[in-house]
Design a protein around this nucleic acid. Structure first.
Lengths: 116, 116
DNA sequence: CGGGATCCGTGCCGATACTG
DNA sequence: CAGTATCGGCACGGATCCCG
């Protein structure tokens, strides 16, 4: 846990900045909870993600090797997503972070509200 | 680890979205590694954060109760920052996430590069 | 059904100048 | 030294339309 600074273009920043976008963690948690899922099932489960952002998020995760995308040559088309082994290895860390957030969010939200 | 969906305005999203911004994690890691620090020391350590963004990030962290800000009535002024207990309790989870990133970033970056 | 393509608004963030 | 204030670019993300 030294300096991720200095060395310009720190790779850790790149990797973590992807996880930090609006939908990535939510998609990962959803896939972890439900296993293999179809596109529209993910969308319905999350509820308020647009079609476009779900597509973009899934593509990024696929590129990074955290999920796999399986296309079935059928009509109507069927596409299934699930976590890779790398993706699974990430989940405990996400979950521990979510656990922390659940434990402390009351304090944090009350602090924010009485600060305007 | 159920549904953070559905309930509109999920608090977990609020809490994690703050951690997901460009500088928050880096500031936390920096404070964890160095203990109590002055404003300009944090800035020099991170290297490429602007004065404005460091101020904004520190204010958010202070509002959320993750760091404390101590002002000394001196000339020239001196302001010191360090983690609160709540802030410290978050760090193991951040560090485990960074550890994961360090372990897998080579795979991820190479996958990205050969994908354009 | 599972997208792709396009347009566009909002907000994040950087650069710069100024202050106690 | 440690900020505040202001301006502005640009990327993120939403809405809509179209396609195989």
């Amino acid at each position: 846990m030294e300096n991720f600074h200095r060395m310009d273009a720190c790779p850790v920043r790149d990797v973590l900045s992807r996880l930090g976008d609006k939908w990535t963690m939510l998609v990962l948690v959803t896939l972890k909870a439900n296993g293999t899922m179809r596109f529209c099932d993910i969308q319905k489960t999350i509820g308020d993600i647009s079609q476009r952002m779900l597509t973009v998020t899934l593509r990024s995760l696929e590129t990074d090797g955290l999920i796999v995308r399986k296309v079935y040559a059928e009509v109507p088309p069927r596409v299934e997503y699930n976590l890779t082994e790398t993706g699974c290895s990430l989940m405990p860390h996400i979950e521990s972070l979510v656990g922390w957030a659940l434990k402390h969010m009351d304090d944090i939200l009350s602090r924010r509200s009485l600060q305007d």
